[in-house]
Structure formats: structure tokens, C-alpha cells
């Protein structure tokens, strides 16, 4: 469950178990999965431990800045038409120490099986976190703590029909919102022409949902444009 951890805590996220044992000002944190075990001692007086969904870009290593969502069923869209679809996207879990309203991550993991891929050619392409998802017209069922639901608005601004098999997003600009186990994100994809599509995220708070902590603060990074141009096919 996302939010502030109060008292002893034991939770399973997919294939990963997280245990948090507080004693006075100190706490012991342990995360185990089939491949690794992480143990940490925490000394905190005023701070809190917060578990939040974060951008799926850090596990097992920071090799990617982009997220590629591959559609199980391609979307065929006629010219000058806009449609909304629901997809599932992977989430990583960030464990933060929150002190004076500042969040500092001390562990990031996923309970799923992350996979990476290349979008474009080996020289100029980008390495992306890969996720294959069915495409739905209504909000799909999802695996809590492993997946979130993306609402994707696709607009074909070209004069030709387009078939869309995947969408690539700049992961640094992801803005997730959560409520209970449900993590959502709003995204757009504009088909500009047969060789170019632009994708981006909509930062608009949803009523009743909490705003997720951004592991990578895009606003602090220079030269991060909110839109990603897909020029190597979609």
C-alpha cells in the first residue's frame, strides 16, 4: 500500500517482500526477492518512511530514460480523428525518507520482471523500459503494485490513416497520481505525419488522488522537453 509507513510493516509486491521494523528512533529495513536482498538501518527522529510509485526507469540499473509501451492489438485510426484508450504501464516502487517535506529515496525496486528494449537504431536510438499491454476502451483490471493504468488520448492530425503499434514516452516527465493501489497517468499521442508522432504526459491532478513523488525531477533537469518525438516508427 502506498503512503506513509506507520509502525511495523510487512508487504509483498509481486515477487518482492518488504519488511520494516521500527524501534524507537531506529528502524530496520529489509527487501528480498529471488535475486537480491537489501538491508538498511535507518536513524530518524522526525522523519517518515513513505512508499510511492515512481517512474519505471531505475531497476535494475539506470540504463533508460524512456518508456516504450507496445500494444498487443494495434490501433488503426483514420485522419483527423481523436480517441481515448486505456493501457497498462509498469511502475517501480520508491521507498523514501521524508524529512521537512523533502523526499530522499533510499531504495527503488519492482515486484515485476522488468525488460528493456531499443527504440530506433543502435547509433541514435534510445534504450527504453519495455512493457507490452492490451488496449482497452474501458479501465482494465491491473496487477496492484506492479502496474498502473494509462489513459492515452490519440489524435491523428495527418491526412492519412495511421496504424499504431507502440508509444514511446520520455520517462523523466512522467507524473503519476495514486489512490489506494491504483496508479494512473494521463498521456497524449499526436500523429503529425506518417513518420512522426509526438507523445507527452498531462500534469493535471485528479480529484481524490495523491500526487506521486517524482524520482527524477524533470523541472530540475535542463533540456528536458515535455514532448517526445517518435521518428523511428509507431
Amino acid at each position: 500500500m502506498f503512503g506513509v509507513v506507520k509502525g511495523p510493516f510487512r508487504e509483498t509486491f509481486g515477487n518482492t517482500e518488504v519488511v520494516f521494523k521500527p524501534t524507537q528512533n531506529k528502524a530496520f529495513y529489509r527487501r528480498t526477492n529471488p535475486d537480491e536482498e537489501v538491508k538498511k538501518w535507518l536513524f530518524m527522529k522526525k522523519g517518515n518512511i513513505v512508499i510511492q510509485p515512481v517512474e519505471p526507469l531505475s531497476v535494475p540499473k539506470n540504463v533508460a530514460k524512456h518508456l516504450l509501451i507496445e500494444f498487443e492489438e494495434p490501433i488503426f485510426i483514420e485522419p483527423k480523428v481523436t480517441g481515448r484508450f486505456y493501457l497498462k504501464f509498469p511502475i517501480d516502487i520508491g521507498v523514501f525518507a521524508s524529512v521537512n517535506k523533502k523526499y530522499r529515496p533510499f531504495d527503488v525496486f519492482t515486484g515485476g520482471a522488468p525488460k528493456y528494449t531499443l527504440y530506433g537504431n543502435p547509433k541514435t536510438g534510445v534504450i527504453c523500459r519495455h512493457h507490452k499491454t492490451p488496449v482497452s476502451l474501458t479501465k482494465p483490471t491491473f496487477e496492484p503494485m506492479l502496474e498502473g493504468i494509462m489513459s492515452l488520448k490519440i489524435s491523428n492530425k495527418d491526412d492519412e490513416c495511421a496504424e499504431i503499434n507502440k508509444a514511446v514516452f520520455c520517462g523523466y516527465t512522467m507524473k503519476m497520481y495514486y489512490k489506494g493501489d491504483l496508479v494512473t497517468i494521463n498521456a497524449t499521442m499526436d500523429i503529425v505525419n506518417q513518420g512522426l508522432a509526438q507523445t507527452g504526459f498531462v500534469k493535471q491532478r485528479i480529484k481524490g488522488f495523491n500526487s506521486g513523488v517524482e524520482l527524477i525531477l524533470a523541472s530540475k533537469l535542463q533540456r528536458i522537453t515535455p514532448l517526445y518525438s517518435m521518428e523511428e516508427g509507431f
Partner: peptide, 11 residues
């Protein structure tokens, strides 16, 4: 290969 995260899906 499918279980190893950093073995790429594509290529």
C-alpha cells in the same frame, strides 16, 4: 534470456 531484464526485447 526472457527473464534477464537487460537482454533487450528489440533487437
Amino acid at each position: 534470456l526472457a527473464r534477464e531484464p537487460l537482454i533487450l526485447v528489440n533487437p
